[in-house]
């Protein structure tokens, strides 16, 4: 049940044969080695598998790999450039928003999507909480994640500079 798909992963064009029964998580993690993507719950509740598909935040565990044909994928592996963390990643480090780290790649992508969309706009803490509601973290209590987001919204420049 194989099929060729053509996609861009973290800026690099790829063509690959995938099993149509695979989730995008399985293809990216098992075939491409992008191990930042975690399978937590496997049912779209915990957000540990969160990635961006054409800059839209999705749970890759309940997204068929065939749907990624022609799309551009972003995972945490592609967020740092030339050994420099993205502004969002750096803010996670600075604020101590990483504890055990299992949920962190998904949370970083959720924060990145939110910051890119809302940069320069006034947002409430409630809106930030809502934007991260699909990512479960059992360590941080989320306060540091909210602080990270507020900090990234305030700083000048693009998230990747």
């Amino acid at each position: 049940m194989n099929r060729m798909i053509h996609l861009t992963v973290n800026g690099r064009k790829k063509s690959m044969a995938i099993d149509i029964r695979s989730s995008l998580l399985e293809v990216l993690r098992d075939q491409m080695g992008l191990t930042s993507i975690k399978q937590g719950c496997g049912v779209g509740e915990c957000g540990a598998c969160t990635i961006l598909v054409d800059d839209v935040l999705i749970d890759s565990c309940i997204y068929l790999a065939v749907w990624a044909d022609g799309k551009s994928i972003r995972t945490v592996e592609g967020e740092s450039r030339h050994n420099t963390l993205s502004a969002v990643q750096q803010a996670y480090v600075d604020e101590g928003a990483v504890q055990c780290g299992f949920c962190t790649p998904g949370l970083v992508m959720a924060t990145t999507a939110f910051v890119e969309k809302n940069k320069g706009h006034a947002v409430t803490r409630e809106a930030i909480r809502k934007a991260h509601a699909g990512n479960t973290c059992r360590c941080t209590g989320y306060q540091s994640v909210i602080t990270v987001t507020e900090k990234c919204l305030q700083t000048d420049g693009e998230p990747n500079q």
């Binding site: 957000g47 935040l57 999705i58 309940i62 997204y63 959720a110 991260h132 509601a133 699909g134 990512n135």
Partner: peptide, 12 residues
């Protein structure tokens, strides 16, 4: 629409 699931679910 804003009460469904979380952001990832609403996006799909």
């Amino acid at each position: 629409a804003g009460t469904v699931g979380g952001p990832q679910i609403r996006n799909i």
